[in-house]
Each structure stands twice: as structure tokens, then as C-alpha cells.
Write a protein that binds this DNA or RNA. Structure first.
Lengths: 142, 142
DNA sequence: AATCTGTCCGCAAGAGTTGCAGATTAGCAA
DNA sequence: TTGCTAATCTGCAACTCTTGCGGACAGATT
């Protein structure tokens, strides 16, 4: 079950190879971030990742976290999503999926549902991607 | 056809009444903004609305535009949507609908499609809203 | 006329993010 | 292993979007 999902979250080793292939270097800072992102379904912000990273590697810079996240996004290894909270959330799960956001606690859950209905009524618009955001109250908050 | 949609965009007169009922005053600045928002499907940002407003009323403050948009949002007369562009977009169409965003020109189109599929697989999550964003290329850009 | 309430505006501050530059280091080649 | 070079790291400044604050101002009420 979860194996199906893990297929779409790159391991630190895979990211290492991808970075080298792209002519990018694999530094200790990046290795740490690869590890923290692996199988991470919390949809962290740059700031929250920085906090966790700092506890393992005091002195790591928030700037470096942003830089690495940008690199990963450019390579398509994660997506940056804006749920309107002010800060961008990063999702290392590159499988096609959608999200449910709890308006009470802010938790963001990956959801796998049928695709959005086909877009009609906009002649000539070619859809490349559709993303559904469900908002409501999660089990823990209700 | 469009009459069905217009039902969900308040007229300046309706907004005037709503503001007075809420104990808020209806100033020339607000009347101007009510008018600029009426039947406006461009999903403006505060800044773009400010630019247009300034041409009709030089001296109007960006601060006032934000304030009025906030008031309208608090009253439920418009919604603020973040498409990840950095700035919030405001939508005076309060009917339940979704959006198609052109990745080339940034245009945002209202779309009326079937609702998103029912959320399954997240036990206990009660959905209050769902919002679909289609991304791709609009007719004019392709 | 005095007062009271809400508004307008400019400015400063706040959050999130990016640009910049000097010091440092990974990766490669000899 | 050593050395070279381009990439990276970090701290800081700058930038964008948005909100807080306070004085001036306007309309209504007493």
C-alpha cells in the first residue's frame, strides 16, 4: 500500500545521483535536507524545514534551505504549493495527487481521489494539470 | 446565460446597503472600488485594482484599497485566492466555481464544472469547500 | 459648536523570499 | 594525494506583499 506511494518520493541516494547528473554538488547540507525530505508527508515550509535541519546541523543557513528547495523544484523532484498561509509548502511527493487542508490546525494531507472533472466551457484552453484542494476539519480537530 | 452568473456578483448598490447595514460608511473611495469590482472577472490583485482606481481618483491610497478589500472579504462579498503568484487575487464572484490559470499569460478564468470527486480515504475529515485549479495554456496563448 | 465614530492616508514594520559577495568546499584531473 | 576551479555556503541587505499605527479629516448626533 504505502509502497505504491514511496515509489514517487525519491530517496536521498536518488537525489544525490540526480544532483550530480545536473552538475550540482552534493554537500552535507544537501544530504541532510534530502534525508529530512525523504518520505516526508508534512508539507513543510522552508522555515519549518530549517528549524528541524538546524537541530541536526547548527549553523545551517535558511538561505541554503531555500536554495536547495529551489534546486529540487527546478529539477521536478518536489513541488511548491501555496495554500494561502503566507509561506510556500514543499511536497516531495511527485505523484499526481491532491490535498486536504484542515482549517483548524492547518495540517495538510495528501489525498488520492478521482481526477477533477474535465474542463469544459473554456474553448481552446489546454489543461496540463489540475489540483484539487479540500478544506474542512480533520478528524483530530472535530 | 451570463445572467445566471451576474446574480452572484453584487452591484455597487447592494454593496452600499451591505456596508451601511454593517455599520460601515460608504465613502467615495469605496463607491469607486464597488464599481470597479462589479462584474469584474479579471481577478485583480490589490495593486492592479489600485492602479485602475488611481486613474479615476488620483490620490487614493493603496492602504484604502487593501482595507476595503478586507472589509468585503470579511462580509463574504468576495474571496481572496492565492494562486502562488506572490499576491492575493480577489474574486467578487461569490458563486461556487473553480479556476483555470494560464501559465503563459497568467490570466485567471472562472470555470463552472462538476464538483470535485468526494473525498475518500481520509477518515473523519469533513469537507466544507473544494476548489479546483486547472493549469495550462489559454486559447490566446496557444 | 462640540463631540463621537469611522475613514483616509502615509509611513513604518512585519513576513516570506531572493540577490549579492566574500570565504569555503566538492569534485575532478593530474 | 594535491591542486584547481566552479559551485556552494552563509550573513546581510533588499525586495514584495501586507498590515499596524496615528494624526488629520468627514459625517452624523447632541
Amino acid at each position: 500500500m504505502s509502497a505504491n506511494i514511496i515509489l514517487f518520493v525519491r530517496s536521498p541516494e536518488q537525489l544525490t545521483i540526480a544532483f550530480r547528473n545536473a552538475g550540482l554538488k552534493v554537500t552535507p547540507q544537501r544530504q541532510l535536507l534530502f534525508r529530512l525530505l525523504h518520505d516526508n508527508s508534512t508539507h513543510p515550509t522552508a522555515e519549518s524545514l530549517f528549524t528541524v535541519a538546524s537541530s541536526e546541523m547548527p549553523g545551517i543557513s535558511l538561505r541554503t534551505v531555500y536554495q536547495t528547495l529551489t534546486d529540487l523544484a527546478d529539477m521536478g523532484e518536489l513541488t511548491s504549493i501555496d495554500f494561502g498561509s503566507g509561506a510556500s509548502h514543499f511536497d516531495p511527493n511527485v505523484a499526481h495527487h491532491h490535498h486536504a487542508v484542515c482549517d483548524t490546525c492547518g495540517a495538510i494531507h495528501d489525498v488520492y481521489v478521482d481526477d477533477a472533472p474535465r474542463l469544459t466551457g473554456l474553448d481552446g484552453f489546454s489543461v496540463e494539470h489540475s489540483h484539487i484542494v479540500y478544506r474542512g476539519t480533520c478528524a483530530a480537530c472535530s
